[in-house]
Each structure stands twice: as structure tokens, then as C-alpha cells.
């Protein structure tokens, strides 16, 4: 069975991410499945929790926020335990967490219904811009990498297009908002 250390992760391309997730499925899913099963959860619960844990693990890897002293499997299990507590409103004290599992989940990880609908709308009506914006802000690719991937003449052009897309999507979100108060929480 393959394992990865935090220093060896390559998550820069879809092919590299596939390998990354494949390794984690092999090494960490059985551990998470055992935990979820022991708490009375189903296979579907384990799958959902594990996939969310992989997303968060990816984000922490991308940010360089991984501790090299903790194995990937332990880290993913720690995230999964926290997700289990949050998702099913379980009492934290009933889930055994050791100090290696002191991970922080992103704020507002589970989206509101309103945000989910807005994303679906933007995925349909503003796909090109959403692709560009997620390459910059979610994947955190450089302007040069994005210039190549999206076919812009220069990194500067890609950056200008990023701001144009921010403006376009901002105005689409405004048009979909019912009241100003929706955005002042």
C-alpha cells in the first residue's frame, strides 16, 4: 500500500490529484470507515465524511498547513472526527480525540441553501469566469500558469481578466440578491 508524507504531495494537476486521492482512499478510508461504523454510521455517511475530509486535507496541503509529524491517515481521521461532530451535532466529549487530531475546520464549511443555489446559478450563467476565479483563488495557481491554461497573451492580461470576472460575478450576485441585508451579516 502506498503512503505519502506531507512533504511529497503533488496536487497541482488533475492527474497528480487523482494519484493523491487514490493513495488516501487506500490508506485512510478503511480507518475513517471503521470510525464511522463504530459510531453507528452507514457506508454513505463514511463516504460523505471521508470525501469532505479529503477536500479539507487538500486545502490544508495547498496552504502548506500540514504538520509533517502527523501521518496523512491520522490527519484525515482527525478531520473526519471533527466533521462527524459538526455534521451530526454530536457532543464533542463523546468522540475520543487525541492531541494529534487537534485540527481546525474551515469556517462555514457546510454551505447554506442560498449559497448552494447561487453557486449552481453561477456555474451555469458564468462558467468561464468561475473557472478562471477558482483557478486563481481556490487552486491558487500563478498568473503565469493561468495564462498558459486559459490562453491569455500575458500574465497581466490574465490578472486584468480576473478583475473583470470579479466585477461580472459580483454584479450577477447583486442581481440575485433580494435585499442589501443579505450581505451585511
Amino acid at each position: 500500500m502506498m503512503t505519502l508524507t506531507a512533504m511529497e504531495h503533488d496536487i497541482s494537476t488533475p492527474a497528480a490529484r487523482e494519484k493523491f486521492f487514490m493513495c488516501l482512499y487506500e490508506s485512510a478510508f478503511p480507518v475513517v470507515g471503521k470510525f464511522v461504523s463504530s459510531r453507528g454510521g452507514t457506508f454513505q455517511d463514511a463516504k460523505d465524511i471521508f470525501q469532505d475530509a479529503l477536500v479539507i486535507f487538500y486545502e490544508k496541503t495547498r496552504e502548506g498547513n500540514l504538520s509533517v509529524e502527523v501521518s496523512d491517515e491520522a490527519y484525515v481521521l482527525g478531520i473526519a472526527k471533527h466533521l462527524w461532530i459538526r455534521k451530526f451535532n454530536h457532543d464533542k466529549s463523546t468522540v475520543p480525540l487525541d492531541e494529534r487530531e487537534a485540527v481546525t475546520l474551515p469556517d462555514h464549511y457546510f454551505p447554506t441553501v442560498e449559497s448552494g443555489k447561487l453557486v449552481s446559478f453561477l456555474a451555469r450563467a458564468g462558467k468561464r469566469c468561475m473557472e478562471l476565479l477558482q483557478a486563481f483563488y481556490y487552486e491558487k495557481r500563478s498568473a503565469d500558469q493561468i495564462r498558459n491554461a486559459f490562453g491569455y497573451g500575458s500574465a497581466h492580461s490574465a490578472t486584468v481578466q480576473k478583475f473583470k470576472c470579479l466585477e461580472k460575478v459580483r454584479d450577477m450576485v447583486r442581481s440575485k440578491s433580494v435585499t442589501y441585508e443579505d450581505f451585511t451579516e
Binding site: 487538500y58 454551505p111 449559497s115 453561477l122 476565479l133 477558482q134 481556490y138 470579479l166 460575478v169
Partner: peptide
Amino acid sequence: LQRKVYALVTLYGRRKLKAEI
């Protein structure tokens, strides 16, 4: 609104990543 857009882009990125997973 711009702050909201960044949050929505994160959700969009997560959806794409979940599809890969």
C-alpha cells in the same frame, strides 16, 4: 458582495474537487 464572491468561488472550487474525488 466581493467578499461573498470569494466565498462562492471557494464553494465552486470544492464542488469541482468533490467531482474529482
